[in-house]
Structures are given as structure tokens and as C-alpha cells.
Design a protein around this nucleic acid. Structure first.
Lengths: 153, 153
DNA sequence: CTCCTTATTGCAAAAATTTGCAATAATATA
DNA sequence: TATATTATTGCAAATTTTTGCAATAAGGAG
């Protein structure tokens, strides 16, 4: 895919994002259905993490009811192709747009605060895993548990 | 807790492990019930990852039926206090004994192969997160996705 | 524009996981 | 050792997530 990056509060970019996404899916033999469009639209409009349940609720409030099974399958589908990232935070499965600039999450196990962590911190590690362990790490979205500054006291 | 480390194929060590675990729980105000003993026993005897379902099955085959809810709650409990580690592998939630010597997992997204990765690789990162991000990372069991040597070709 | 292929959906049922609560039983204490 | 406290269990119901399958509809081809 070319450049699927997006920016906040810019509907125009959202349209472009969706158009490029459609092309990407089609070129892979997938289809860009209204349901998938709506789900992606939700993540574009509503930055941040969403649980499957939250996705369902917001769909209903848009009177665009989509079957639960479809929602679960779509989230998993978008995750598989790299459009959404998936992580476990506070015991919940949450999805979010996978930015073109990868980043990771520091999650406080005490207060569930989530802090972003830039990708470059792992450059060395990835290189090492490849050179010495023959493992091609794909660090698109790592979650690191611990205690934030507040809770560490 | 003192030293809860254990070694493979040494029932004596297992007994000691369990004894120390009982002391630890009691000192924390928890109770070491037969159900919890059996579940921990399973992980001690049967090295490796186990899903909640597998735990249930092995319990049944030992004619020591424990209610599903108790199994889920116990796994979560042991995870919370650091006796078991928990991770998502191949879309499944799996638990295993949290060794006193921490290690991590390289998981191949293609063939689900799991390779251990020593903890020391993260020493620098942990130090950096603490110094520059005021985040006290607890890297007891990290899962890194990617492709193993085989599948990378 | 119409037809074909088949990816995807909705539905309903199954399976997995969580939760509330009364009964039970593991500890600490006397 | 007997008793009191309350953490933990089992059960049943609720909730969440997955799965099979027939019907639908997206996208490519003519």
C-alpha cells in the first residue's frame, strides 16, 4: 500500500485513506464492504483504543447496526492485514489504527494509564534478533507493562 | 518470597516450591487451597504453556474436577501475584510458570513456533525507560511477533 | 450493463469467559 | 483443639467470542 497515514480532524484525509484502503483490499482479492467502511470510519473519526463492544455500541448509536460476528471478524481482519493494531490493556482487547509510524505502549498495571513509546528504541534489538537469532521481528505494536511515574511511588 | 525457582523432573523441588508458595500466599492473606495446589502442580509437572481449556482437561483426566470458574480465577490469580506468566500465542491465552530467571518469547506468526529469548536483552531499554520516561517497566514476559528463520524465506 | 465467481454477511447455535452469591473451608487466634 | 473470620469455591446465569452455513452482494470479466 502506498501511504495510508492519516491525521486527526481532517475528513479529506479520511476519504483518501478509505479510497487507498479500498484499492489495497481489492488488489489483495478482498472486498471493501459498507460494514468494513463504517468500522474503519469509526476508528478514523474516533482516535484511540476501542474494544469490540465499544465498536458495536457506536455502530448502534449510528443506527448502522452490524452483526456482532461481523464486527469481530472485521477487527480481526483489519488486524491481520495491518490496518489496525491489537493489544491487551487492562484485561481488555483493544484495537486502534496502526499508524504508518509504528509506536508502542507503556501500560501502567496499576492505573491503566497508556503512554506511547517511539519505535526507534527497538532498532538495535530487532537488528540483534535478526543477526544472532535468525528471527525477523515485526514490532508493530508492543505493549510493555509496568508502573507509571505516579504509581511507582 | 524467598526462592521459588524450580527445576524439571525433580519432585522434591516441586514439594519445596509448593511449600514456599503456601507461605507466600498465607503471608499475603491468601489461602492455598487444594484447587490451587492441583493447578500449580499441573504446571510444575507439565512444563510449557497451557490454555485454560487444557488445564480443565488435564484436571478431569486426573479425576480432580475443578469448576471452570475456579480455574479461570486461579490462573488469573497466580498471574496477578507473579507465579504464572500469561501471553497470547496463536490467538490463544496461555499460561506457564514464571521462572525466577525471566525470559521472553519470540513467536512466529506463520507457524506459531515459540522460541525463548533471554531477559538481558532488555536491560538497556528498562534502564532508559526509567531514566528518561519515569516508567518502571516490568518485563516479566514479553511476546515478540515475527517470522522464524524457516518462515522468513 | 449484465453475469459469474466467491468473499462476506447475518443468523443462530456453540463455546469460552465472566460474574453474583450463598455455602464452604483455610487460617489466625484464643 | 475449638472458634471466628473471611477468602475461596461451586453453581447457575449472564456476557462475550467463535463458528457453520445458506443467502447476499462486491468486483472482475465479457
Amino acid at each position: 500500500m502506498g501511504n495510508l497515514s492519516h491525521h486527526h480532524h481532517h475528513p479529506v484525509d479520511h476519504e483518501q485513506f478509505q479510497a487507498e484502503l479500498k484499492d489495497k483490499l481489492n488488489s489483495l482479492g478482498y472486498r471493501y464492504t459498507p460494514q468494513r467502511q463504517q468500522i474503519v470510519g469509526l476508528f478514523l473519526a474516533d482516535e484511540g483504543h476501542l474494544t469490540p463492544k465499544e465498536v458495536t455500541e457506536r455502530m448502534e448509536s449510528q443506527s448502522a447496526a452490524i452483526d456482532q460476528a461481523t464486527i469481530y471478524r472485521s477487527l480481526e481482519f483489519f488486524h491481520k492485514i495491518g490496518v489496525l493494531s491489537c493489544s491487551q490493556i487492562g484485561g481488555q482487547t483493544v484495537y486502534e489504527i496502526a499508524h504508518s509510524v509504528p509506536h508502542h505502549h507503556l501500560v501502567c498495571t496499576n492505573c491503566d494509564a497508556v503512554m506511547p513509546l517511539d519505535d526507534h528504541h527497538f532498532d538495535e534489538l530487532v537488528e540483534h534478533l535478526w543477526q544472532d537469532h535468525q528471527f525477523k521481528a515485526s514490532l508493530t505494536h508492543l505493549t510493555i507493562s509496568g508502573l507509571c511515574g505516579h504509581c511507582a511511588n
